[in-house]
Amino acid sequence: MNSFRIIGNKKAQFNIDANMFSKSVIMKVLYWLNNDFVVQTTSHESQLLVELESNNDTDWNIMKKTISTMLNDFQMREVIEKETHDIRNILYVKAFSNIDNFTEYDTEE
């Protein structure tokens, strides 16, 4: 996240480099912001311009830190999910398979 600009009490803009954060990570962060803010995004090449507007007064310095933490956290969650996606599926398949009920078919016939 860079170029964080505060516009009055109720509006702020910042850029996110789409080369650094995946679309999924960015969308998850914006998802959690859209209860408190009207969120608008504009894309310029690899930069995503995000504009947040609130009806309430906002401490934008705290917000800036929060958004930065959320971006890093969701990026880490994405790494964990990608690396563990297959093993998680295996674990759930094993957990819910009814081994006793399986019918063994003779595939030689």
Binding site: T69, D73, M76, R77, V79, I80, E81, K82, E83, T84, I87, R88, L91
Partner: peptide, 27 residues
């Protein structure tokens, strides 16, 4: 996948921040 020098692997887990710590919760 990240290549780690000491070759451990990740299992599925989630995390959040509580106070000045990280709470890590497995599957």
């Amino acid at each position: 996948m990240i290549q780690r020098n000491n070759s451990y692997r990740l299992l599925p887990f989630k995390f959040t921040h509580i106070g000045n710590k990280e709470l890590i919760v497995n599957e």
